[in-house]
C-alpha cells in the first residue's frame, strides 16, 4: 500500500507534479495520462532521483522520501525505464543476480531466486546467454525479471510494452498480472497501451498536467468524461 499526498515537484518555472494525491492499494495499478502529464516524474520521485518541494509518500507505513536513493532498492522499490537497461555484455543470469545481490534478501539461495525469476517471466533462454544476443521482447522480459527478483515491495514499470508487437505484449501482460500474487508486490504500470492497462490493472489513476484528475476501477476511469477529454482528446488532435 502506498499513499501519496499533496506531492509537488518544480523544475524552475515548470510544475510537472502539482499537488498529486493518490492511494495505490494492492495488486497491479495503472497510471496513465497524456505525454508530459508527470508519470515518469512521479516514478523518479519514488526512485529518489527527483526531490519534491512538497508532499509526502508513505509506503507500507514508512516515509519513502527519507530514504537515500540506492537504499530504496534494498527496501524493495524496483523499476524499469523507458530506455532499455538490461546489460548486453552480461549473461541473463548475471543481469538478474546483480539486482538480487543488492536486495535485502538473506537466507534463501541466490541461484534459486534468480533462476526462479527468469522462469517466472517465462524467459525460455539459456541463463548463460549474453543479453546482447537476445531479441527485443526477450530483453524486455530480462528487465522485468530484474524488477521482480529478490522480494520487491513496489514494482514500477515504465512503458514496458513500448515498441513490442501485440503477441509479445500478451506474454508480458500475463507476467505483469502474476507479479502481485507470486511476488507479493504492488505494481504500478505506466503505459500508453490501453488494452494492456485495462487487462492488467483493476485500479487506474489518471494524471494530466501534474494533477490527478481521476482514480478508481479501470473500466470506470476509462469511461470518465474528464479522462476522455484530457487523454483521448489529445489523441484525436494528434490523429
Amino acid at each position: 500500500m502506498i499513499e501519496v499526498s499533496e506531492l509537488t515537484v518544480r523544475f524552475g518555472g515548470v510544475t510537472p507534479l502539482d499537488g498529486m494525491s493518490v492511494r495505490f492499494e494492492r495488486g497491479t495499478c495503472g497510471l496513465i495520462g497524456p505525454n508530459g502529464a508527470g508519470k515518469t516524474t512521479f516514478f523518479n520521485v519514488l526512485s529518489g532521483f527527483v526531490k519534491p518541494v512538497a508532499g509526502q509518500i508513505t509506503a507500507y507505513g514508512e516515509d519513502l522520501l527519507k530514504m537515500a536513493h540506492y537504499r530504496r532498492a534494498r527496501w524493495g522499490v524496483r523499476r524499469t525505464f523507458q530506455t532499455e537497461q538490461a546489460i548486453e555484455e552480461l549473461s541473463v543470469y548475471d543481469n538478474v543476480a546483480m539486482i538480487h545481490e543488492h536486495s535485502k534478501v538473506t537466507g534463501s539461495s541466490r541461484r534459486e531466486d534468480v533462476l526462479g525469476a527468469i522462469e517466472f517471466v517465462k524467459l525460455d533462454v539459456d541463463p548463460n546467454a549474453k543479453v546482447g544476443t537476445l531479441g527485443q521482447a526477450e530483453r524486455r522480459l530480462v528487465e522485468v525479471a530484474r524488477a521482480v527478483v529478490g522480494k520487491p515491495r513496489l514494482v514500477l514499470l515504465d512503458e514496458p510494452a513500448a515498441g513490442l508487437p501485440d503477441e509479445e505484449t500478451g506474454v508480458l501482460s500475463d507476467v505483469i498480472q502474476a507479479i502481485p500474487q507470486h511476488m507479493g508486490a504492488l505494481v504500478i504500470l505506466v503505459d500508453h497501451d490501453m488494452s494492456l492497462v485495462s487487462s492488467c490493472c483493476e485500479m487506474t489513476a489518471v494524471l494530466d498536467f501534474g494533477r490527478l484528475i481521476a482514480s478508481g476501477p479501470t473500466a470506470e476511469v476509462l469511461r470518465d468524461e474528464r479522462v476522455m477529454r484530457a487523454y483521448l482528446g489529445t489523441e484525436e488532435v494528434i490523429a
Partner: peptide
C-alpha cells in the same frame, strides 16, 4: 557494468 550502462538505472537497482 550497471554503472557503465546507466548510473540512474544502477542506483534504481540498489547499487551504491
Amino acid at each position: 557494468a550497471a554503472i557503465r550502462q546507466s548510473e540512474s538505472a544502477a542506483l534504481a537497482g540498489g547499487i551504491n
